[in-house]
Design a binder for these strands. Structure first.
Lengths: 335, 335
DNA sequence: AGACAAAAAGAAAACGATTTCTCTCCCTTG
DNA sequence: CAAGGGAGAGAAATCGTTTTCTTTTTGTCT
């Protein structure tokens, strides 16, 4: 292994000088610095992160709470955004784990000397939630995604605005009877409901209670069930909004089983802008949440919390998405 | 921060004694060891990974080469297997990056003192390939997935056996005319082709040249194109094998455009066992590669390369998958 | 009781960086 | 020409562990 010491001997200067040269600090002449840098390249030197961390108390390492099935496209896209942005800024990321009775997320982060932590999804169990909270209330810089902790920055998709946009889009196509099958209750769902009702009210769209049904996220069967329930209404909606694309696919299949074809008989709208949306026939009209950007924003926010600690003030960042038209929605205006 | 020093003062013993107690080394009495451990728990001590790494040259960190869109279900499932297995064995994982002109995968791994590296997918560019090779030829323990490096262990899905199984399954359902739209040429594709032809020959299934067409992995459009080409044959196959589920969906859509319905007119078979396969109507017959297990195996192999270095001998591990029946294949035997 | 081995305890030297502080020089300025 | 200032160079301390080696204590056996 090539160390500063080795370099210093090779160049005939002190270890301190080598350190200064390599870090662009001053206190060393330009020629010597150049010599050192050249020699470093020749000898294949790379700094020892452990030693540097030990001394500086900065690890260039970001901890990440990510207790999710990665197969979930929404979360994996966020993760990718996080990774890309971290990489670009010279940070590495470390998945934080939680072994009840042994150590928690916080201990893990501290053990690895993480400079900060991004909470993507803490896990569903009571235990994991409380460990995540411990982290959020610690002295570490923390940024969360899709949930809000006291006095911490957060980054979320624009669920309220997203649903407003969808309703506005559908209204433009002549839809007046909108049903909303939504996911499990939580911050995200509440935002979406608010956006939905707000946009409907603004356009004088009346939404019967029976048009709003709880389904589940990422669950085509739950969507099918909710759809079936919806079909019992005397007057059918012209369009059904689903909590995500996977659910939407499930709903469309259920409609087909009842002899209703999409979009001729009824329209459907997904959420997330996942790959599936482009694969099915008809393609899905959906709402792209811009996950990659959500991940990136979280990293940028965290880095500024780390590096400008003194003048950092937490805030809630909303990343706007956009409607992706698709074959599953019929244009009722066009006659 | 609670350090060994702090603990030693609190317990009235030497730093060395504390270290021994916490690591279960001998050279300290049972009672003192117990006292130290209790105090450590009380004071909320956790070891400083950087200091430990610096001293021991072991980081409990695994580098991972993963230059892929995570939205790809196949890779993200592998990644998840890697993460889970690593976590279980007390290792963390670090994504290795490659910034041309700055540093390569190897430098990144060394800088972070990785104990070993898993090469999942090195990236497609010339540059990345060669950086990955540098890593594979370094003195670090390396295990690769889906590709083989000289004198290194590898873990791969059983592509050869997978296709044999598929053919065998289809044969059992009465299919005799099989077409194979495969992905870009490479180790994986060659294995699959070999398995396909071997199984066909064993059953006296003749495969006309025009039934074997190159498409692309994960590309529904390429699959559609290849499918169109296939439809020009005077005699159509009874079943088309696709390189993966995404391609399969693209193929089915193309067939529909030509007025052929699946599985009534023609059957289709995917690969990967992805979520999509369960969502479409009909559901996709597919082959589950057991990706999670592939990731796990790679970690186990790497850990033994790291921890039993002296008696480690590289080998190629094959993880077998299994056929998942689905609605896209018609049972021709049943009349 | 005395001698010796074995176990326990601790002092100190690393590991590879950063950083502070001191010491030289050399140059500028009055 | 003397004084003052600034830049360059390096010695040494330090970060929190582990580990070796020496010293001390304890226990065993004749």
């Amino acid at each position: 292994m090539v160390t500063l010491r080795a370099l210093s001997e090779r160049c005939g200067v002190s270890v301190a000088a080598v350190s200064k040269a390599l870090n662009g600090r001053q206190g060393i002449s330009a020629e010597k610095a150049e010599l050192v840098r050249r020699t470093a390249r020749e000898m294949g030197y790379y700094p020892n992160a452990a030693a540097r961390t030990l001394k500086t108390h900065r690890s260039l390492n970001i901890g990440i709470l990510f207790k999710n099935v990665m197969a979930n496209e929404y979360f994996s896209a966020i993760l990718e955004g996080v990774r890309d942005a971290a990489e670009e800024h010279g940070y590495d990321i470390t998945f934080l784990s939680n072994v009840p009775g042994e150590y928690g997320y916080y201990q893990h982060a501290m053990r690895r000397q993480c400079d900060g932590v991004i909470i993507v999804s803490p896990g569903y169990s009571e235990q994991e939630q409380s460990e995540a909270l411990k982290l959020a209330e610690s002295d570490l810089p923390v940024v969360s995604i899709d949930q809000i902790y006291r006095n911490r920055s957060s980054v979320t998709g624009d669920n309220l605005g997203g649903l407003e946009e969808i309703v506005s889009y559908l209204y433009g196509l002549g839809h007046r009877r909108l049903a909303f099958i939504h996911g499990e209750m939580g911050d995200v769902t509440r935002q979406r409901l608010a956006g939905f009702f707000r946009a409907c009210r603004a356009r004088d769209i009346r939404v019967p209670d029976e048009y709003v049904i709880q389904g589940q996220y990422q669950n085509p069967d739950a969507a099918a069930l909710a759809t079936r329930q919806l079909l019992r209404c005397k007057t059918l909606p012209t369009c059904i909004l689903y909590p995500d694309d996977t659910a939407c696919v499930g709903g469309i299949a259920e409609l087909a089983d009842h002899g209703l074809s999409v979009p001729e008989d009824i329209s459907c709208f997904g959420y997330d802008g996942s790959h599936i949306a482009l694969l099915t026939r008809p393609t899905l009209a959906t709402h792209d949440q811009n996950c990659h950007s959500i991940g990136e924003q979280a990293v940028l926010e965290l880095i500024s919390a780390i590096e400008d600690a003194k003048c950092f003030v937490p805030r809630n960042i909303t990343v706007t998405g956009s409607v992706h038209p698709g074959g599953s929605v019929r244009d009722l205006a066009q006659k």
